[in-house]
């Protein structure tokens, strides 16, 4: 059960870590890299609080071993925006009360980011279907859906203005 070197890119930075093969990606992010945006919620691949973007896919990082992420390009909520420069989605969640306790929010926003990359102009139904892997126990989802739709509309206006 030898420790293994893993090289991956996290939020644009090259990282080299030494892990046991059984170490889950969420633990490496949180405990070895101090990237604590992705949360451990259910730890059974249901809640989506640990969602990260990995090579263009939304992935539940509690259900992947770090060794499987060798060479991967990972983006977490920390890579999307910062306290000084909020991502459009973060701004939209703030403006539309898309969060209460905030525990699910990093996973929600990381997932919504990928959803809007794949479908920049989703209907409300498509947002609900596309966000179905993320659970929120506070908001009842209404304001989360509203936030994602608001961010989509904001991103589309910005794109049009740029063209």
């Amino acid at each position: 059960m030898t420790k293994t070197h893993v090289s991956l890119t996290v939020n644009g930075e090259k990282k080299d870590v030494l892990v046991d093969p059984r170490e889950l990606l969420i633990h490496t992010l949180r405990e070895q890299m101090d990237i604590t945006g992705p949360h451990i919620g259910c730890e059974t691949s249901h809640c989506g609080a640990c969602t990260v973007d990995l090579d263009g896919k939304s992935v539940k990082s509690c259900t992947m071993f770090t060794v499987q992420a060798e060479g991967a390009d990972v983006t977490t909520i920390e890579g999307l925006g910062s306290p000084d420069g909020l991502h459009v989605l973060q701004e939209a969640f703030k403006e539309n009360h898309g969060l209460q306790c905030g525990y699910c929010t990093p996973g929600m926003i990381t997932r919504a980011h990928r959803l809007l990359q794949e479908n920049p102009n989703p209907t409300e139904e498509e947002v609900r279907f596309g966000m179905a892997g993320n659970l929120c126990r506070c908001t009842g989802y209404q304001n989360i859906v509203k936030s994602v739709l608001a961010a989509a509309s904001e991103m589309n206006s910005a794109k049009e203005a740029a063209e």
């Binding site: 691949s45 896919k57 939304s58 539940k60 997932r111 892997g133």
Partner: peptide
Amino acid sequence: IADPQVRYM
């Protein structure tokens, strides 16, 4: 099947 994150994997 399952949810979006699971379907990517």
